[in-house]
């Protein structure tokens, strides 16, 4: 189980690469795991082709949740929103490089849930405009 706290995860937790808020941003979303107290907000900027130009996360949570958010916000830069929608649970686990039990899986996947809610929100807006 010590694998959970591999160097990469502790390093990302202590020295996150993309922690912060983006002002302005094209969309933002925030959510939490109410039972464990993890809370993540993700801000995203996209260009005219709906390609992510910048992403940042903020909030609080355990090392797994924070490392996952940091890896994910770095991973999505350069991807289109359609590509972001295709990101799966397995992609997150591959980035983290660890296997997780059901309880900690919720920590690892919170940032993906937040990001996708944000992405689908912006799509909804476009649908409304058409």
């Amino acid at each position: 189980m010590d694998d959970l706290y591999r160097e990469q995860i502790i390093d990302r937790f202590k020295n996150p690469r993309s922690r912060g808020m983006l002002d302005p941003h094209d969309f933002t979303y925030e959510d939490d795991n109410p039972l464990c107290g993890d809370r993540i907000r993700i801000d995203v900027r996209v260009d005219a082709d709906n390609r992510v130009t910048a992403a940042a996360f903020s909030g609080q949570g355990c090392a797994i949740a924070q490392a996952s958010a940091d890896l994910l916000t770095e991973f999505v830069v350069g991807k289109t929103l359609d590509e972001v929608k295709q990101i799966s649970k397995d992609d997150i686990l591959e980035m983290l490089g660890i296997e997780l039990g059901p309880v900690r899986l919720k920590c690892a996947l919170l940032s993906l849930k937040v990001l996708k809610a944000g992405v689908y929100g912006i799509d909804q807006l476009e649908v409304d405009l058409i």
């Binding site: 189980m1 959970l4 706290y5 464990c36 107290g37 993890d38 949570g61 090392a63 797994i64 900690r104």
Partner: peptide
């Protein structure tokens, strides 16, 4: 974070609750 503490304790066979 309390969950990380619990997980590491678990790894040495100490069961606690976190949350």
């Amino acid at each position: 974070h309390p969950h990380d503490v619990a997980q590491i304790l678990d790894s040495i066979g100490v069961a606690v609750r976190a949350g």
